[in-house]
């Protein structure tokens, strides 16, 4: 499903070269739930961005869903991303559209037949417990609800892989627990999950395989 081999990512800040990831290698099997733990700046987001080809590695090999990610052409990048759901700390909902429209939007741009859109949107909203908020605008949602809407948007396409980049980072414990439960439900449905968090307590509570990043290096792979 995911395989990284000796991956380096170095950013050039003027003449200075700053390594964001140093010699990272690991493998994630299909159907696994893996927690990616590390402090802010440890390289979690960079690592996730490499997986959906938002960044290119400076060195090393990356394979996701059988795609040789660094070698992909533009059209293939789009193909890869169609199989990956991504959620962020900020939900990135479109402010001018309702929750329903936010979820429907991604289905529309991917050419989903019109008759399939409404049932799939409501299936996704039901899965995250937001059916009753379908007509609400993002500004009318709590942070927890916004994050759940973002999850609904990510799972409406039935992705094979879910990349969650600090989805609970700005939530209180109750809301965070709700989001984690939903992500676990998604995983239980067969989706492979890579869940990034800086919260050690949350990483431990997830009780899943945990990869720990420190200063861009993978220092621990346990569980």
């Amino acid at each position: 499903m995911i395989e990284l081999h000796r991956v380096w990512k170095v950013f050039a800040v003027g003449p200075v070269k700053v390594p964001a990831l140093s010699d990272v290698s690991f493998r994630v099997a299909k159907g696994e739930f893996v927690t990616l733990h590390g402090a802010s700046g440890a390289g979690k987001t960079t690592l996730l961005r490499l997986l959906y080809r938002e960044e290119l590695p400076t060195e090393g090999e990356i394979e996701v869903l059988d795609y040789d990610v660094p070698a992909l052409r533009v059209r293939e990048v789009a193909e890869l991303r169609r199989s990956i759901g991504v959620v962020f700390q900020d939900a990135k909902l479109l402010p001018g559209r309702t929750v329903y429209e936010n979820v429907a939007f991604v289905l529309r741009v991917l050419g989903t037949p019109r008759r399939e859109i409404t049932p799939r949107v409501f299936d996704a909203l039901r899965a995250v417990g937001l059916s009753s908020r379908a007509q609400a605008y993002p500004a009318q949602l709590s942070q927890g609800e916004a994050q759940r809407a973002a999850l609904a948007r990510a799972i409406a396409r039935n992705p094979l892989l879910l990349l969650a980049d600090e989805p609970t980072g700005s939530l209180d414990d109750t809301m965070a627990a709700e989001v984690v439960d939903i992500v676990k439900d998604i995983w239980a449905g067969g989706t492979t999950v890579l869940f990034a968090t800086h919260q050690a307590r949350l990483a431990a509570a997830l009780r899943q395989r945990t990869l720990t990043l420190v200063g861009g290096r993978l220092v621990k792979d346990e569980g």
Binding site: A78, R81, S83, L94, F105, V109, L110, R157
Partner: peptide
């Protein structure tokens, strides 16, 4: 820009973008 970001993120064909 947010819409374009989302469209690219979910793998929308370049033509649709």
């Amino acid at each position: 820009r947010q819409e374009l970001e989302i469209m690219r993120l979910v793998g929308a064909p370049e033509l649709v973008v």
